[in-house]
């Protein structure tokens, strides 16, 4: 190299040295993330263990908390406001809706804080920062797996026996996890730039809660062609909930909306790809204290 100055050592002048703190190319970065998979797993498992360790009922709370939630919503909306009218197996319908929504909303809100609440960790150790939001979604995933069992138990309790269609739970949970991961990556970076977002996210989450048809049936209340129905059908959360109910519950109201699989898959892949690139692009930014 021809560039030589007196007082400095240009990067190329020192053989064998590489620049510190530069952002690696995407491929190398993702390989580094894969190398840290044991760390991600351990972080997720140990955090759950630590959270439950101090409660007397421990792990049982993972299942009890959302069920109590579903109980409250069932009482208020189903019983008091009568949103259950005309919905087959309303309790199973509601439980599937609440539990699946919980997976989305906790990934969304805690994923957003994954970098900001771990500032000390980010500033003291070198590892791909993507490990933090990934560990959070992994933690939610581990908590969601027993929920799938609870949802299945409610479905069976209302006379919907397991059939071959239940195997679709596997791709459904996989797609939902991909979607939640992508979303967590996006919100994790956004929160680093705009701390105020943590105040806004609960409202966004609540808006999805009321508009995704958790305690009422969108299909029954809005005819095809109405604006709300069109928006709701294009909206991933509603698609995931409908698919979950169609897989687990029988009856004419729960016929499989096959086109939703295409939409949900497209959403998931798009959000994950976008989230990965968006998160990676600011890798150097996460360690800064301002």
């Amino acid at each position: 190299m021809s560039r030589q100055r007196v007082n400095t050592s240009p990067p190329s002048a020192v053989p064998g040295l590489t620049k510190v703190g530069g952002r690696p190319p995407l491929g190398a970065y993702l390989a580094d993330v894969v190398r840290h998979r044991e760390f991600i797993q351990a972080l997720a498992r140990f955090r759950i263990e630590a959270d439950n360790g101090r409660n007397r009922l421990g792990m049982a709370w993972v299942v009890l908390r959302p069920l109590l939630n579903a109980g409250v919503y069932g009482l208020v909306f189903g019983f008091v406001l009568q949103t259950s009218r005309g919905v087959d197996d309303f309790v199973a319908f509601l439980v599937i809706g609440v539990l699946m929504f919980e997976y989305f909303s906790t990934s969304f809100s805690t994923g957003a804080k994954s970098i900001t609440t771990n500032a000390a960790l980010v500033q003291s150790l070198a590892f791909p920062r993507m490990a933090l939001p990934l560990a959070l979604v992994a933690e939610r995933f581990l908590q969601f797996v027993p929920m799938v069992g609870v949802m299945a138990a409610f479905a069976i309790g209302y006379g919907n026996l397991p059939d071959l269609e239940w195997l679709l739970l596997v791709p459904l949970v996989a797609l939902f996890t991909v979607f939640n991961t992508g979303l967590a990556l996006i919100t994790a970076r956004l929160t680093v730039h705009f701390r105020d977002l943590t105040n806004l996210l609960p409202f966004i989450s609540r808006m999805f809660f009321y508009t995704s048809g958790i305690f009422y049936s969108i299909d029954q209340r809005f005819d095809p062609g109405t604006t709300f129905r069109t928006v709701a059908d294009a909206q991933p959360i509603h698609e995931f909930l409908s698919l979950g109910r169609a897989v687990l519950l029988d009856g004419p109201d729960y016929a499989m909306p096959w086109h939703f699989w295409g939409y949900a898959a497209a959403w998931s892949v798009a959000v994950l790809v976008l989230g990965t690139i968006f998160f990676w692009a600011a890798e150097e930014r996460y360690g800064r204290t301002d």
């Binding site: 050592s9 510190v20 771990n118 000390a120």
Partner: peptide
């Protein structure tokens, strides 16, 4: 260690320097 980005100037190292500390 590369944890705090520099505003100007550069740092080159033979391997990534690490901070002794794991507490966080």
């Amino acid at each position: 260690t590369g944890l705090t980005p520099t505003s100007r100037g550069s740092i080159h190292a033979a391997s990534r320097p690490s901070m002794l500390g794991v507490g966080a």
